[in-house]
Computed example of a mutant assay.
Amino acid sequence: MNNFNKYIKHHLQNLTFGYYPKKGWIIAQNIDQIKTMGFFSINLDSIFFSILMGILFLFIFKKCSFLLNSNTTPKGIFNVIEYISETINNIIIKNLKYKNELIGPLSLVIFMCIFLMNLIDLFPMDIINIFLYLLKINQNIKILATSDINIPAGMAISVFIIILFYNIKNKGLIGFIKEICIKPFNNIFLIPFNIILESLNLLIEPLSLSLRLFGNMFASEVIFILINILPFWIKWVLSLIWGVFHILIIPLQSFIFMMLTIIYLKKSYKTNTINSHEINKMEK
């Protein structure tokens, strides 16, 4: 049982670099050192694999764009890329009736980057750590970046900032503040309650984006770890079954994150919830 606990803890530990009071800036050797480092630490493996998948996304789509613009017949992966682009474009046209030059590229980047980061989870989880063991390096590298809360939270916060920007841009700073003050109850005495309620409503958006993605991918990784410690005769069967099921989870999580982003941006255009009569009434 102790070996199992050690195996699980080892595989849930990131390659973390940070400041440790007794040794200075080091790569953490155990979970206790990671806890001591606290906020002043960086998960090198999560950053590396997220950047790597971003570069892979740019490389594939840049190459595909050159070929598609050269009037050649798309084949293989180019058909897949064209299908994904057209599908996302149709979703945006159907759900967002306002002109926005950012939403298309943003939705595509979100979907593909999360998809590629999730796709890594189908690779054998011990393959990199075996190489590290052969090199006598007692460190664990987590290749699934989305199972690190920092990556989904960083993406969610970035989307949240964009949502705030378009709320202020489309409604004006005064209009945005007034909307917070009179929703959901158009009563001057309920303004403090409205502010609390709407502030919580705004904060829930990045929380729902980050925790949903992190929770699903972290749980999936834990299941793979638990399967991996089972006897060989049953391990490969369960790995195959869970791997097939996981193939459905990978694009689903990417799609959900993208769709929620589109929906939240759509809300930033709904200025008809406040009309001039209501604003004048509140001013009086």
Rank of each mutant, 00 (worst) to 15 (best):
I34Y: 01
F39E: 04
Q13F: 01
I249C: 11
M217D: 03
S65K: 02
I149E: 07
L190F: 07
Q29D: 07
I163W: 03
N79L: 15
L252M: 11
L58P: 00
N2S: 14
L12Y: 02
I227E: 00
G175K: 01
L56T: 08
N71P: 03
I81F: 10
I162Q: 01
F165C: 00
F111S: 02
N129L: 05
K62P: 02
Y7P: 04
N201L: 08
G24S: 15
Q139A: 13
F185Y: 08
L106P: 14
N2V: 08
Y133G: 14
K178F: 01
N194T: 00
I84R: 13
Y269I: 06
L58H: 07
N43F: 01
V109L: 10
S46D: 12
K178A: 08
A219G: 07
I55R: 08
T87R: 11
Y83T: 12
Q139T: 05
M112F: 08
I223D: 01
L134S: 04
N3W: 04
N118C: 04
F131E: 06
L68Y: 01
I47K: 00
L67S: 14
K99F: 09
L135E: 09
P206G: 11
S268F: 05
L135D: 07
F66M: 14
L248S: 08
Q29I: 10
L12H: 02
S268V: 09
L144I: 15
E86S: 11
F78V: 11
I223F: 03
N167R: 05
N186K: 07
